[in-house]
Design a protein around this nucleic acid. Structure first.
Lengths: 204, 204
DNA sequence: ATCCTTCCCTAACAAGTGTTTGGTAGGTTA
DNA sequence: TAACCTACCAAACACTTGTTAGGGAAGGAT
């Protein structure tokens, strides 16, 4: 039974994590293609070739960064979706969970946002497309349920609403910096308030 | 008086436009760094070296794509801002104008979204940072005016609201396809309805 | 003292990169 | 016909890219 591709002989998982974290930072800041393995090695304080003791390719670093992020994301999402909440409460929980994930995986989210589209065409990264489909099913389904229940407006294109909610949440990763003046929960609260009730003053 | 850098001897502006349009499509689809000049030449039906008859570098193609887009964008924005509308009407006009620009410059907007952040550090693309500052001033100022006038809610972080409105509009470029079922004006109308009034049903 | 494991370095590789140079087919002008 | 201009091709250039092979230093285990 041959081991897949080119596995590392021995390498500590802690060091891997460290290197993946710095790699993710560089990827997020410069873009994946614009990032050379020498830049990553620089940021990690070593030489380019040394990275290949821990990983067998630049692409597999990206792969591991994205897949571990998505795994953790879906852990949180599935918990929410299994709680059988009402439509509005589900949306609230999903948004809050999303901002927590942005807080924890800021770099990975930024990479995902920039590169996801053209990566998902590649067979190796097909799980990105799978995830997106599952994502759409969860959010769109909740919105439709909400319209049917009369808690969400029925005069809007649901698909447009879906993209609206989805994008408003995830683009926050492009400017969010952990340790800022707003906690993830506070940002989620304000975002939800805007998305649900709008920014205009109600004239009743 | 020496001409700057390496100007083309002679080249028709129409052909330049054509080539820039195809280059913008490839940049938008694959990302700037992942796009080789050979791919652009392929899409244009010629060889890589031939591009250098029209342009003096790959970077100057990107430059011309982004700067012409921003020029046209600010033409529209400045017209709106000079009309001395009320805060709410200004936001509505800006959003509508934005979707029209996305309709016209879909590829350029997509490129701008992906690459703007790390490009603006480069001196050549410093006008991107200038534009962003001007952008923020216009939108944030309008929002603050609206809060002062009592047409926008005062219980929200204005800067957060700004990012919210800005992002919801421009990320649309990532999925928008001209000739779809919704016109730019229709999309603007629904987006404004969501941003201003929220997606929840009002329980009076 | 010897061996082994972990982790990194040195030095090079082949492929791909943006770019340049010189040439040339076809149309326009003199 | 001759000169010229436009728009491209053919072929190479110097450099950067991801990746590999072999070696070696430090430290723990035997």
């Amino acid at each position: 039974m041959p081991t897949k591709k080119k596995p590392q002989v021995t390498a500590s998982p802690e060091r891997r994590r460290e290197l993946l974290d710095t790699a993710a930072e560089v990827f997020a800041a410069q873009g994946y293609n614009a990032t050379t393995v020498r830049k990553i090695a620089d940021a990690a304080g070593m030489l380019a070739g040394s990275l290949y003791y821990h990983f067998d390719s630049k692409e597999s670093m990206l792969d591991e960064i994205l897949s571990t992020f998505l795994t953790e994301l879906w852990e949180g999402y599935d918990t929410v979706l299994a709680s059988s909440l009402g439509p509005r409460e589900t949306i609230e929980a999903l948004v809050t969970e999303s901002f927590r994930e942005i807080d924890r995986h800021r770099a990975a989210v930024a990479i995902y946002q920039k590169e996801s589209r053209h990566l998902s065409a590649q067979p190796r990264f097909h799980y990105l497309a799978d995830s997106q489909a599952k994502f759409e099913k969860a959010w769109l389904g909740t919105l439709e349920r909400g319209v049917a229940d009369g808690v969400f407006r029925d005069d809007l294109d649901v698909r447009l609403t879906y993209r609206f909610v989805r994008d408003t949440v995830w683009v926050a990763a492009s400017w969010y910096r952990p340790g800022g003046q707003h906690s993830p929960e506070e940002i989620a609260r304000q975002y939800l308030s805007m998305v649900l009730d709008g920014i205009a003053v109600r004239t009743a």
